[in-house]
Amino acid sequence: MNPQIPVFITAALVWAIGIYGLIIHRNMIQICVSLSIMESAVIILLVGLAFVPGGSAPILDGHTGPFADPVPHALALTAIVIGAGFLAIALSLTVAMYRKYGTADVKKLFPWDETQ
């Protein structure tokens, strides 16, 4: 039974959930949470791609037989670290803004939406 297809469906769903959160939320901490979820989705996708049925992790300590594709793993690691850097900046911007304006609500900070 190949588990790749359910993993892909999960990845796409999680990605969609992350985008949904980005659209509906106004609180900056919650926006950061949605960002983090959206970034994880691509990692899930990468790991699902690398999966080989009946294989093992790409560490050559005496194993034989098929190994998972190591390239997506390397890409996923890079993407995780970059995502962490982004989130750290987003959180520090949130803190800086809260200190200045006393709110973490983007809508209150943003003059461009004249209707509210």
């Binding site: 900056m28 926006i31 960002l35 959206m38 982004f86 987003a90 911007l93 803004m97 983007v106 900070l109």
Partner: peptide, 12 residues
């Protein structure tokens, strides 16, 4: 910082 935050979301 507001502009930076919005840019960060767009860039993400």
């Amino acid at each position: 910082s507001v502009a930076g935050f919005v840019y960060l979301i767009v860039a993400s």
